[in-house]
């Protein structure tokens, strides 16, 4: 056959880009694997075997006797998450309007709002919790504040996306009929965004239940406090029980919130 395939067209720019990305990735891996410090002798030591034999059976034989204490702390965890996320759901609204380019027609303010929200999001909740524990002492309030601030970052961003996607014609119509700014907000904007705001807030509550269950490790209240005690005292049966309670509670809350969110939208 005389059917020679024509050569594949390649633009030099593309080739260079690919080579650079490839080199960067290779360099990253070389750097990682040459400097990472894993103590293999410890990992594959007799102690590990002993630990496995000791911990795993305990872990899967949860301490039912502790159920009462653990449940009380789990409820506290849910309360922390709820208080924090409700506060965030409200705090995020003004910030979201500030970020939405169709509401505040000032690029500078939009960008500032985005920066605030972005900065907040970059902190893991547990770091916020550390700071608030230092500020208000080791109690649930520190956890609530950490959750509230952390959630505001994400909710503000999601809310502002919702606001930017609304139908502006309705607002034009209201303006044309002589409505003032507040009236437009409550008759034109809120009805459009409220279901999605609620849905996101509930979704964030799901995440917050997960997050607040570990805040106790740094002293910010909730079931995490028990994790630290159980872990320091090597009560693996308690760790197992705590984990079981968290899994069940989180699953139930996910189901309920999923149900409510489906009804909302």
């Amino acid at each position: 056959m005389s059917n020679q395939l024509p050569p594949k067209p390649r633009t030099p720019a593309k080739v260079v880009k690919r080579v650079i990305i490839l080199l960067a990735v290779v360099a990253l891996y070389v750097w990682t694997f040459s400097s990472v410090n894993i103590n293999w002798e410890r990992v594959f030591s007799e102690r590990t075997l002993e630990n496995i034999n000791r911990i795993i059976p305990q872990f899967f034989d949860p301490a039912w006797a502790e159920t009462g204490t653990i449940l009380v702390k789990m409820v506290e965890t849910i309360f922390i998450a709820y208080t924090g996320s409700l506060a965030a759901a409200v705090l995020a609204i003004p910030l979201a309007f500030l970020c939405a380019s169709n509401m505040v027609k000032n690029k500078f303010l939009n960008t500032i709002g985005m920066w605030i929200l972005g900065a907040v999001r970059a902190f893991p909740e547990i770091i916020l919790a550390i700071i608030f524990v230092a500020a208000v002492g080791p109690n649930p309030f520190a956890g609530v504040l950490a959750i509230a601030i952390g959630s505001t970052g994400m909710l503000g961003k999601l809310y502002s996306e919702v606001i930017e996607s609304i139908d502006m014609n309705i607002i034009e119509a209201l303006e044309a009929s002589g409505a003032n700014k507040m009236q437009i907000l409550f008759y034109g904007i809120m009805p459009q965004v409220l279901p999605e705001f609620l849905s996101y807030a509930i979704y964030r509550f799901e995440i917050d239940v997960r997050a607040s269950s570990v805040l106790g490790i740094v002293g910010a209240g909730g079931i995490g406090t028990l994790i630290t005690f159980a872990y320091l005292n090597r009560n693996w049966d308690e760790v197992g029980m705590i984990l079981l309670v968290i899994i069940i509670a989180v699953t139930i809350i996910d189901q309920i919130s999923g149900f409510i969110r489906r009804r909302l939208v």
């Binding site: 990472v36 410090n37 894993i38 103590n39 293999w40 410890r42 990992v43 102690r47 590990t48 630990n51 496995i52 911990i55 872990f59 547990i126 997960r210 997050a211 269950s213 570990v214 490790i217 995490g224 994790i227 872990y231 090597r234 693996w236 760790v239 705590i242 984990l243 968290i246 899994i247 989180v250 699953t251 996910d254």
Partner: peptide, 27 residues
């Protein structure tokens, strides 16, 4: 779904218990 409900830090607690303090448990 069950795996996703386990907080990362609890996984870390368990693996630190098993493999000792260090990078390996975290990974």
């Amino acid at each position: 779904n069950i795996i996703r409900t386990i907080p990362d830090i609890i996984l870390a607690v368990v693996f630190v218990g098993l493999f000792g303090i260090g990078v390996f448990s975290g990974i």
